[in-house]
Amino acid sequence: MFKFGSFLMTPMAKYLMLAFALVFPLLAKNEYQVYVMASAFVWAIAVYGLNIITGFCGQLNLAHGGFFAIGAYTLGLLSSDYGWSFWPAFVAALVMTAGLGFLVGVVSLRLKEHYFAIFTLCVGFIIYLLMDKWEELTHGPIGVRDIAAPYGFGLVDFTNTVPFYYLVLAFLVFAIWFMGRLSRSLLGRTFIAIRNGDELAESLGINLMRNKILAFVLSTTYAGLAGALYAGMVRFIGPEEANINHTFDMITYLLVGGIGTITGPLLGTVGIVWITQSLQFLEEYRMIIFGPLLVLLVIFFPRGITGSFLGWMHHKRQQPQATAKRQASKATAATEVESNA
């Protein structure tokens, strides 16, 4: 067991996971399974975005689903109403979510903790209302049809499920790679310092606003990327993409997998998407299980699967040292008692 645990910490485990993802379409029983996996990957990209602002920076962003929907709508509307082809619209979707993320961030990130969460909850709802009511722009409840699929420059046809799966996988790998690099960099450490506390971070000479806005814009861009891929995959979107429940779903994926970790968002998202898929009856009532699960997780396992595993591994390694130290400190405590007496 210990050996297996150690193995999971090596780069080899990463490459095995990637290899599995690469051959998955061959292992899958049918195209539908590939489709499900591709959609899980799309959500995972968005969850990585949430992980930046909420996991690393410690700011609970409840508008994340809204930014996902903005990415999807930007691509959808540009391609269906304005005749843009996929890739320019795709870039526009990223620019749009980054730009709006910047604007929302400038206003909302001055707010602390609860105020920020409440504010973003309202921003998410405004996004939903606009998509639902602003019919001239968004078609209202009817939604957007005939969204362009990504074109493969004559090389591949992304309207087929399997090529699309690999496209999503490529973006996912990039998203995770960047997340890993970010988390180990000085910038990632800066975000974590902000999570530890605004005042402490400031007293370390960290410019709070600049770093929080950067984290927020990164997170909304991830959301926009996921949203745009989603629109290119399903080709038909509606205001429900901005439903607050999507944000809640993503929070659940993040918490189950491990908030603030690198592998957590992937494990949480893929795991839960497959569990809900295989237990179809769960689809409608999944929240009866997810709700209490969220509560139990924050009370007992606030660090999710990955975080708990890492903690366990760390203690396995430190055990001999730690025991020795505990005995040493017991000894000093004993001498203190003696000297006091």
Binding site: F178, R181, L182, S185, L186, L187, G188, R189, T190, I192, A193, L204, G205, I206, L214, L218
Partner: peptide, 17 residues
């Protein structure tokens, strides 16, 4: 502790990328 010296450094997002 590593972040303690952050204020004397200048690397940004591009450097990370």
């Amino acid at each position: 502790l590593i972040v303690g010296h952050r204020l004397r450094t200048r690397s940004g997002l591009w450097d990370v990328l």
